Simulated scan of single mutants.
Amino acid sequence: MDWLERIAKLRQWTRSGARAPHKPLLLLYALGRFQDDADGSLRYTAVEQDLQRLLTEYGPPNKTTPAYPFHHLVSDGVWEVRTDRGSASPGSGIRDLRETGATGQLAPDLRAALRREPDLLGRMARLLLDLHFPPSLHRELCEADSLELELAEAEQLSAIRRQRDRRMRELVLTAYEYRCAFCGYDGRIAAMPVGLEAAHVRWWAFGGPDDIENGLCLCSLHHVLFDKGVLGLGDDQRILVSQRFVGHSPAARDHVIALAGRPLIGPQPGARPVAAVHYDWHARQVFHGEPRPATA
């Protein structure tokens, strides 16, 4: 059985590029727990808060519940659910899972394969990360799920996932003249830029192309905040800051809150700006809550 192919083909609700990372987040969490205790099961009531936190922080802006993936992942053949009475999953209702003492665990065949092939867990986790999340969040997700992975290790999974265009970074940084489009940061060591990255507006994992119209040059801080939905981009190419972001320090005010309503820095004349189809996707699928009013 090709477990990587099965992971790549998880049944997910999709419509117009909508994000539905519920099952991938549950699987990443379960793989992290498997590393710690290969025989342990996850009682829903014990992990519900952890799973809800992951969905809130890394899922789409709309409200959702961990009960959904806990029940429906069974249909993909990689997960099993049992109750205190020994029966199968009682359904996707929170109350059903709580009252029946439902527990979940990686499917027996998958657990056996993970024991036989020590590197399979890392390959599965990296595939889930690549297919559903931008690289700026990979390390943070591993830490949140207690996954011990070497993220720099090269993988040969080209038959399962499409390949990135390695020219993307240079094209985007050149278009924005090696300055963060949000704050103007342009740090270098000798001739080499440091802390500047090419951010996909529409995530590569969700069909975002590797071109200038889908890219922003951002400093490392603003790249992560952009990918977590704290920052966004409005119709007039002005920066959006989520009302859900809270920060009282001068640094939080100066580097985040004060960006509300500011125009982007760049791109340089002749370079194409971010296309509406891409920043509209980001506003629907990544940006959290309502934007703050522009600062004076």
Rank of each mutant, 00 (worst) to 15 (best):
M1C: 10
M1I: 13
W3I: 05
L4I: 07
A8F: 00
L10T: 00
R19T: 04
G40A: 15
L42T: 01
L42S: 01
A46E: 15
L51M: 08
Q52A: 06
R53V: 11
S75L: 13
D76P: 01
W79D: 00
W79V: 04
V81S: 01
S92V: 10
G93D: 14
G101I: 11
A113D: 09
L114S: 04
R123N: 03
M124C: 15
M124Q: 15
A125S: 09
H132K: 11
E150A: 15
L151D: 10
L151G: 06
E153C: 09
A154F: 07
E155Q: 15
I160Y: 14
R161Q: 13
R161E: 12
R162G: 15
R164V: 09
R166S: 14
Y178I: 02
C183W: 05
G187T: 10
G195A: 13
G195R: 00
E197M: 06
H200G: 06
W203F: 12
A205P: 02
S220K: 12
V224I: 10
L225E: 04
F226I: 01
D227Y: 06
G232R: 04
L240H: 08
R244C: 11
F245A: 08
G247F: 11
P250A: 13
A251L: 14
D254V: 06
L259R: 03
V274L: 03
V277D: 12
H278A: 04
F287M: 04
H288K: 15
H288P: 02
G289N: 07
P291N: 03
R292G: 04
